[in-house]
Amino acid sequence: QFPTPIHQWNLPNLPEGTEVWIKRDDLSGMQLSGNKVRKLEFLLSDAVAQGADCVITVGGIQSNHCRATAVAAKYLNLDCYLILRTSKLLVDQDPGLVGNLLVERLLGAHIDLVSKEEYGKIGSVALADLLKKRLLEEGRKPYVIPVGGSNSLGTWGYIEAVRELEQQIQLSGDVQFDDIVVACGSGGTIAGLALGSKLSSLKAKVHAFSVCDDPEYFYDYVQGLIDGLQSGLDSHDIVSIQNAKGLGYAMNTAEELKFVKDIATATGIVLDPVYSGKGAYAMLKDMADNPSKWKGRKVLFVHTGGLLGLYDKVDQMSSLAGSWRRMDLEESVPRKDGTGKMF
């Protein structure tokens, strides 16, 4: 559902003269919501062009990318095979129907679970290749999509998103952004945004807050993606990457989860705990610590979706949720039968 809306985001405690706007890529669709849709537009087109009858991809147990891939594959009449990473204690158990898993399993996606230890030892590429080999032996025609849809082809999704943004700015006629901010988990989104901004009329500075791995890992990863597009550019020159992983990928401190709740209450924007929540938390912390860096600037934050991931945090967030009560009904309130009695 493109173009996704842009509107001002009334965040609290911003530096003097700073405006934050938000690009609502969380509204790119319901089952297909989030930034992964833009990459899948190119990747699944390639799968169809190559005559694939199924796709394989890899991710965490609550991967937004895997859910979006399963949905988009079904739209195109392709079977979907998901290799999902989970804990050693849960790898032999039914993964349940929480969040993204509910959508994937309703769609009939084939799910293979691996432990985090197995994943770390074997790696996502080798795991996908193993499943691809088995499917080929069965006479299938599989197409492998990398983790997060992040390869040079998938990067075009956010190069196109920058073109969309250019058109929206031209139509509005009064908003020019100095900075674009996004949470970074697999590298493809920031590579596309950074390269797109460099090649466009925007010339906005792109900031990424990494929610897994360290900034140098992502600088190298982005370099590989833009080299694949023969850009001739240095990743350090087109994007600024800061660490926001905290306790680790898909792990949250109590303060981060409280931030997600407080922002929802204050602004009506629900962030996801894995990506946009950590990204916005780190952005506001950097604004508080370095106000002169952001003073007077117009900042566009890209909300990359992931609402379903909140369901996996219910136990941790239950104490933060809003209160409830049974409605107090006075005795004088007429009852439906006119008797004034409750049944």
Rank of each mutant, 00 (worst) to 15 (best):
Q170N: 06
S115V: 03
S186Q: 12
M317T: 08
L27W: 11
R325M: 04
R24I: 02
S292K: 14
G148F: 13
V98M: 01
G120S: 13
S152Q: 08
Q168W: 06
P334H: 04
S323K: 09
S63Y: 07
G306P: 13
G173P: 15
L300V: 05
G246W: 01
D312G: 12
G338N: 07
L271W: 13
Y219K: 05
H65F: 15
N290V: 11
L101K: 10
H110K: 07
E255W: 06
Y81K: 08
L320V: 00
G149I: 05
A191K: 00
K285Y: 03
Q168P: 00
K336L: 10
K313H: 11
I169D: 02
V20G: 13
A266R: 11
P15E: 09
A244M: 04
C184K: 00
Q242Y: 15
I61N: 02
R325K: 05
I269D: 04
S115L: 05
V314Q: 13
I269K: 11
W156G: 00
V274N: 09
I169T: 08
Y281Q: 10
D237F: 00
N35H: 06
T265S: 09
F218E: 14
V270E: 09
L43D: 01
D328Y: 09
I61D: 11
K278G: 03
K285G: 06
E117N: 13
I22N: 08
H65E: 15
E118I: 12
L131A: 04
G108W: 11
G34M: 12
A288V: 00
E104R: 01
K132V: 01
D79R: 13
A70G: 14
V20E: 10
I241T: 13
R105A: 09
K261Y: 05
A194I: 02
K298F: 07
C66V: 14
P12Y: 10
P15N: 10
I6N: 14
Q168A: 10
G148D: 03
S200C: 10
G51F: 07
T189G: 02
G154P: 15
L135R: 06
A183W: 06
C212A: 14
S276L: 09
S186C: 09
D129W: 00
S172M: 01
V206Q: 00
L171T: 14
A244C: 12
P215L: 12
C184F: 01
E331V: 02
A244N: 14
A70Q: 11
L82I: 01
A126V: 01
L90Y: 12
P334I: 00
G108K: 01
A70Y: 15
L153W: 04
N100Q: 03
Y281I: 10
Y119R: 03
A183L: 12
E16S: 15
M287K: 09
V48C: 12
D315W: 09
K74L: 04
D237C: 02
I226S: 02
E104S: 12
Y75K: 08
L247N: 01
D53Y: 07
G277M: 04
D337C: 04
K258M: 02
L43M: 02
S200Q: 00
V98T: 15
Q223S: 07
N243E: 08
S87Q: 14
G154D: 07
D213A: 14
L90V: 07
V333H: 13
F259A: 08
A288H: 02
Y275D: 05
C184R: 03
